[in-house]
Design a protein around this nucleic acid. Structure first.
Length: 386
DNA sequence: ATGTAC
């Protein structure tokens, strides 16, 4: 048992499932989120429900958690955005070009609002994927907390680990946060229509059908992030090379061969090498090297800063404090392209917890170390005025 | 989160 792990008052006795929140006592975790974690721990087959330091309330199930489950698949734990994750690309753009090019880049990236004009079927076939009814969304970022962001390396803690990734100081990086768009949504909706959102016995046909569709959506989401990055690069005239792609909303066999299913809902994997843990558009993001052997943490990490305020609360508070134009530049000098006013407020830096505290909790729990920090340069959400 | 529900 790791001493750094604190359970925030969760009573673990007389419960089959372990409930744990990985956060220091000084890190604030919303009570509703912990209650949701406890409720999910009572689901059929549940062995462990582990909250990450970015844990916050979701629609019934909390976001920022890993769930180990024996004999059951729980589609509603994964949610509608099956396969959502983070992709990091390196670009050939020198950091010194920011000053001269930022205005132009901010205009050009609006092209990503339009559907991709390329050969969707051909791209999916080349990636070994079948067609679906939702392929028109391929190459679009979507809404909510999704974004594509140019970043500069701010500080480096581990030069060797950075070099292993092929990443060099002085060149900009591109981080894409997106998922399976309408495809994952349709898979969850179908599950809810048929089974009222209930867990599925793992050996049954329903689970097999869900898992097959889930795996398709996970692969589709990865291709989507790739296409979003390539379109972004094309729009601003950058060459791109892939660095990292990880999924934080998905279910797979637990890596210890126990036969348990590891559900991740807003939890990054610790078993696939370095990950990016993004802050908000107004704070640094962290390139993080996980310890891969932490079963007690559900082989998982925080997937971001985590919301501090609900969307409606963020709108209400921040509309009184800021004009929209105030939010189109950030404290770190970054530019924000978000024509959707509500979204501009909902995703403001103040709506998120402090990323340095979240990453600090991961480090204190011994879950890994920081390779480098990344500074936002240009955050694209949508250029469409709403 | 959603080519978004009412």
């Amino acid at each position: 048992m790791n001493q750094a792990i604190n359970c925030h008052g969760v009573k673990a006795e007389e419960r089959a499932a372990t409930v744990r929140v990985i956060a220091s006592p000084s890190s604030w975790i919303e009570g509703d989120a912990v209650r949701q974690l406890e409720q999910t721990a009572a689901l059929p087959g549940m062995r462990a429900a582990i909250g990450m330091p970015d844990l916050h309330p979701g629609k019934g199930t909390p976001i920022g958690a890993a769930f180990l489950c024996a004999g059951h698949v729980h589609p509603h734990l994964i949610g509608n955005d099956i396969g959502c994750g983070m992709a990091l690309w390196r670009t050939d753009l020198p950091e010194r070009r920011i000053r001269r090019k930022l205005d132009r880049w901010a205009e050009l990236v609006g092209a990503l609002d339009d559907p991709w004009g390329g050969d969707v079927g051909g791209l999916l076939a080349a990636r070994g994927l079948a067609r679906s009814d939702h392929d028109a969304g391929l190459g679009t970022i979507g809404g909510g907390n999704h974004f594509a962001e140019l970043q500069a390396i701010e500080s480096v803690n581990d030069e060797a680990a950075l070099a292993d990734l092929g990443v060099a100081r002085g060149r900009l990086l591109l981080l894409v946060h997106s998922g399976s768009r309408g495809l994952g949504e349709s898979i969850l909706r179908d599950h809810i229509d048929r089974y009222a959102g209930a867990g599925l016995p793992e050996d049954g046909d329903a689970a097999a059908r869900y898992l097959a569709r889930h795996d398709h959506a996970v692969a589709w989401a990865k291709v989507n992030r790739e296409l979003c990055a390539r379109r972004f690069g094309e729009a601003i005239g950058a060459e791109l090379e892939p660095v990292i792609d990880v999924c934080h909303n998905c279910v797979a066999a637990a890596p210890d061969g126990s036969g348990c299913l590891l559900h991740r809902k807003g939890a990054a994997p610790s078993t696939e090498g370095p990950v990016v843990i993004p802050g908000s558009r107004g704070t640094l993001s962290y390139l993080f090297l996980p310890d891969p052997a932490r079963a007690d943490a559900g082989w998982s990490l925080a997937h971001g800063a985590g919301r501090k305020w609900r969307r409606s609360g963020a709108r209400d508070r921040l509309r009184r404090r800021y004009r929209p134009s105030d939010l189109e530049t950030t404290a770190l000098g970054g530019r924000v392209v978000c024509g959707d006013r509500d979204l501009l407020y909902e995703e403001a830096p103040e709506a998120y917890k402090k990323i340095d505290a979240v990453v600090g909790d991961l480090v204190d729990a011994g879950l890994g170390r920081v390779i480098a920090t990344l500074r936002p340069v240009l955050t694209f959400k949508t250029a469409r005025r709403r």
